[in-house]
């Protein structure tokens, strides 16, 4: 009983941290357009101390959209591939999958992003493709290790009790592997939030834009504004994953 309560408290703690983080982030986002006095005090030499080419809310939305769409595709492909190579019919492809994922993850994400440009061109698409491609790898890898870690006894019992292979996968294997898979999604999304910021250099709209514009125009205030929003977004999303993870693993000791 005691530990059930402790787990419940853990979930609530993580959830509370996430909600506080989210509220704080939204507050900063809403306050930023009115912060000219602060930035002109901090950077008196700058004529225009507040980034105003686009609204910050729009940049955040574009950034989140890019990451969301790319990560969704990465999730579908990564989890699908991970499930395939752990089934009897796909087991033969496991080695190739592992090679691809180990090799791919040594590729720096920024280099993958750059290489997409000669192939695809500038704009949203190279960023989307780079994020989705790169995002597949940690998700696929964790799907495989999560599914492999499911106890053989639970699988044998599920078979022996009369579940169909699909029922075993859906009711036993995937829920038990879920925390590990989620950890992979978390890694993937964290990396993608960063790469999406750099994607402003290949012409896609994201929170990296104020940073790049600031770097080119020597406007440190722009850089700080962009950096705070990118960093905050990454941290808030990470807190969200933390909350989700503790909820998914509540059956554990």
């Amino acid at each position: 009983m005691m530990d059930t309560m402790a787990i419940a408290l853990g979930i609530r703690d993580a959830l509370r941290r996430f909600i506080i983080g989210l509220v704080l982030y939204l507050a900063i986002l809403l306050a930023l357009p009115y912060s000219t006095p602060i930035f002109s005090a901090l950077f008196p030499q700058l004529e225009r101390p507040l980034y105003q080419q686009q609204t910050f809310a729009k940049l955040v939305a574009a950034h989140v959209m890019l990451v969301l769409v790319a990560s969704f595709v990465a999730m579908v492909v990564g989890i699908g591939a991970g499930m395939f190579v752990t089934r009897p019919r796909g087991r033969e492809f496991r080695k190739i999958f592992e090679t691809l994922s180990a090799m791919g993850q040594t590729f720096p994400p920024v280099a993958v992003l750059a290489i997409c440009v000669p192939v695809i061109g500038f704009g949203f698409w190279p960023a989307f493709v780079a994020l989705a491609l790169y995002g597949v790898l940690p998700i696929g890898e964790n799907t495989v290790s999560g599914l492999e870690a499911v106890s053989p006894a639970a699988k044998e019992a599920a078979d022996g009790i009369g579940m169909t292979p699909i029922q075993v996968l859906r009711r036993i294997e995937l829920p038990l592997a879920a925390p590990v898979i989620l950890a992979g999604i978390r890694t993937s999304v964290t990396i993608n939030i960063g790469t999406a910021a750099i994607a402003s250099t290949v012409g896609s709209v994201s929170l990296g834009l104020p940073i790049i514009v600031g770097l080119n125009g020597n406007n440190t205030a722009y850089i700080v504004q962009g950096a705070v929003l990118v960093a905050g977004l990454a941290i808030v999303v990470d807190l969200g994953f933390e909350a989700l993870l503790s909820r998914l693993s509540r059956w554990k000791a």
Binding site: S151, A153, I161
Partner: peptide, 22 residues
């Protein structure tokens, strides 16, 4: 069908194989 057969036969094993998330 194997599943239908198995649902008519109880099965218990040494390592128990309880589903830890349930």
């Amino acid at each position: 069908r194997p599943e239908i057969l198995r649902r008519r036969i109880g099965y218990a094993i040494q390592s128990v194989g309880l589903f830890p998330h349930w």
